[in-house]
Design a protein around this nucleic acid. Structure first.
Lengths: 208, 208
DNA sequence: ATTATCTATAGATCTATAGATAATGC
DNA sequence: ATTATCTATAGATCTATAGATAATGC
């Protein structure tokens, strides 16, 4: 039995790696669609093309799959923020960050919904990891933005709320896609324009 | 048996009204916290102070409670948008709308999370009602904002995306409260500043 | 008489395990 | 020999109902 959390753990075979990956891919699909409680091992097994007991041969249980998946995605999810560069032009950096976040919401809507559901339900699985990995990064990047504002290279505003509004506006296109689709029914240019709009929004706020 | 969906339905007794209300209050607490699938009738019954079979005496089942609750909240949820007044000063109207939405997120976070969860899971219960009640209102108010822009009283931008960004930024404070709390740990002024920030954000965008 | 509530439980769904069998790698 | 997979099923959880009993309103 390959254990997913303990230490020595030989070396995982090729089949190990392939099947664990297939399970996590399937779990992303199912958990992001139905949430942790709404998802069943049957769905994940069907989606992965494996039997249910076989799923449990690779993971300790439903929660193990979920936590493993969230952690595997966390770094990717934080990357756009990590890339905020102190050496770049402030406004350009922020706008590029907004664009990266929007691209991610568009390209990885399932990942966005997975995290949104987890946070919405109180972050019961992720809280310790968010505290450990996300909070320090957030603090550092807010300090960077504050420096930019203090040196007059960005219009002053609250950096924390700036970050919140960047996440909210970009992730909205993934997390609330069902609503957007309903509201934009029979609209010609549906789905376009978000990038230009957000650029305009944050430029209006931050340009000195 | 009081039926919740049929037509003639005598007149509901005082106990009827009181207990249905108690159940919906309990359901708001439980569904907003754990989602539709995560919530159980046991939890709702305990929260309402009634036995589980008694819950099912007043409602046809778990889904009936959920749909009734969502519909009962929908009008309230749309009120801030309905109040956008064509006769008011455009920028003042928009900023007041933002403030109303922020106030609602702060005052009714459970309602916000209830809707957020429903949309996130594809709006499977609400879609028809959103199409019927929300979509026409959205279209009308977008047209109003477009008129304001066409007449030069607001800086031109995409009205639909403007609406999306208003909802996203304001509801974020309710829907992602767990994340905000983690990120603002040991921050002195945690929880304040959103109102001023959002005013600044949307003024920067819309001021002519 | 009608409305409201309770106890007991059926029946469905779901996670997880036991234990046997097949496939793979030295 | 070890790793991977399968069948069968235990055991927990959950929605919902049956049917009896208590409370309420003419």
């Amino acid at each position: 039995m390959p254990d997913s959390s303990s230490q020595p753990a030989k070396k995982p075979s090729r089949i190990q790696l392939r099947n664990r990956k297939r399970i996590l891919d399937a779990a992303l699909e199912v958990f992001s669609r139905d949430g942790f409680r709404g998802a069943t091992l049957d769905q994940i097994a069907a989606e992965a093309g494996l039997s249910k007991p076989n799923i449990l041969y690779y993971f300790d249980g439903k929660e193990d799959i979920h936590v493993t998946l969230l952690n595997a995605q966390l770094d990717t999810w934080l990357d756009p923020m990590l890339a905020l560069d102190a050496k770049g032009d402030p406004l350009t950096e922020i706008l590029a960050y907004v664009q990266r976040k929007l691209d991610m919401a568009r390209q990885f809507p399932r990942e966005s919904r997975l995290f949104a559901g987890e946070i919405l339900r109180g972050a019961s699985f992720m809280a310790p990891y968010l505290r450990r990995d996300f909070q320090p990064l957030f603090e550092a990047k807010c300090a960077l933005v504050q420096d930019w504002m203090d040196s007059g290279r960005l219009q002053a505003c609250d950096p924390q709320h700036l970050m919140f509004s960047i996440w909210a506006t970009t992730q909205h296109y993934a997390d609330f896609a069902a609503q957007i689709e309903i509201l934009q029914a029979d609209k010609p240019k549906a789905g376009s324009g978000a990038s230009a709009y957000l650029r305009q929004l944050f430029t209006g706020l931050l340009k000195v």
